[in-house]
Amino acid sequence: MSHDKTLNKGAFGVSGTGDTSGYGGLVRSNAKPGSSERPFGSYFDEVADELERAFPEFNDAIEKVIVDRDELTLHVKAAHLFETATKLRDTETLRFEQCMGVSGAHYPEEKNRELHAIYHLLSMTHNRRIRIEVSIPDANPHLPSLVEVWAGCNWNERETFDMFGIIFDGHPALTRILMPDDWPGHPQRKDYPLGGIDVEYIGAVVPPPSDRREYQ
């Protein structure tokens, strides 16, 4: 596990003048845990080994493996997502028979990898969990649908489409699910404002949360 050291300075992450008034030009850092090296520990080595054995294109399909906070994340290339998912489900020694859901994330500063789809898999047979993460460019937000692998991905993919605009190719009916059908935009993206109206309280005006002064 290799965290960016700058994140662990001081209790409140103070650097420079320590000005938290919001006017000091403090910048939001976004350092994520880096790639992990073997041995991963726990059952993670076994999962990686078994997947490698069952899946000839393992090295091609898996971009990196991250073990962080006792959780295994496989970063899979979008082109190999369907195959990887099928192998994870069907291989007897892996048997991830349940996909607990699809979660999206938007990282606008990651060029050509702006949109992430994150799948949490559960193997009830082996009592294991892993996470699959796929990143795709905002300009071409297409991913293969996994409804054929896990039927339960149906609504989850619709939600991720609704909220992030990721298009799941092969989905039986990819429509909005939580927002109204004619809603413009994808609300969970970072460039989509939270919105809201000013609230007046005893003469003072409180702006909506997204317009308030920010502590970074």
């Binding site: 960016d4 939001r28 959780e71």
Partner: peptide
């Protein structure tokens, strides 16, 4: 408080089944 960057998935058995929370932190508050 600041939370170190990374992501986790935590679960509890709610009355309706697995309630999972996927949290991503970028190191901010």
């Amino acid at each position: 408080f600041r939370v170190p960057a990374g992501q986790v998935y935590s679960t509890v058995e709610s009355p309706r089944g697995e309630l999972g929370v996927h949290l991503i932190s970028d190191g901010g508050t």
